[in-house]
């Protein structure tokens, strides 16, 4: 995916102000994403890296006032891409719920003898499926 880089941090030293040695004004593009880190020690599973983070992270312990980071803390590497995937999944689930409702209508109309309406309902189901298929096909390889 071709994302533009983050907006520059105002506190950070400006790379555009030419320092000694004339840097390229274009910030380098981020390297392609590969799972895990270049440092092997960071590739250990989270519960090995942070044994303090337990499944409940202290939520069940009455002595703990301020719980630390939750079980998934520190694992997200590309929040933008990841949240898009979550959004696609949420939309797809919503459409499927609509389909479940639509199927009850189709069965009802068919059993009541209204075949024409049942076929319209089937059209709705098929269109919904195409929408879900589209949501999936946006990027089938996304994680």
């Amino acid at each position: 995916m071709s994302e533009s880089t983050f907006p520059p941090d105002p506190e950070a030293p400006r790379p555009s102000t030419p320092p000694a040695g004339g840097m390229d004004p274009e910030p380098p593009r981020p390297p392609a994403y590969t799972p895990g880190s270049a440092q092997p020690r960071l590739n250990r599973p989270v519960h090995e890296r942070y044994p303090q983070i337990r499944p409940t992270s202290g939520y069940g312990d009455p002595r703990i006032r301020h719980t630390g980071p939750g079980p998934g803390a520190g694992t997200e590497q590309e929040p933008e891409r990841s949240s898009k995937l979550s959004a696609r999944l949420a939309l797809a689930l919503t459409v499927v719920i609509g389909q479940l409702w639509g199927l009850t209508i189709v069965v009802d109309e068919w059993m009541a003898g209204d075949t024409g309406t049942a076929w319209w309902g089937t059209g709705f189901l098929v269109l919904s499926f195409l929408v879900v298929l589209g949501l999936w096909a946006i990027d089938p390889k996304d994680r």
């Binding site: 999944l89 389909q99 639509g102 199927l103 068919w110 709705f124 189901l125 879900v132 994680r143």
Partner: peptide, 23 residues
């Protein structure tokens, strides 16, 4: 989540096929 999206798409297709079968 990717797998889940694929499963959801499959379920959705199944519902569409079910609608055709009922009608």
């Amino acid at each position: 989540r990717r797998d889940y999206l694929r499963i959801v798409a499959t379920v959705s297709g199944g519902l569409a096929v079910g609608g055709v079968a009922v009608a």
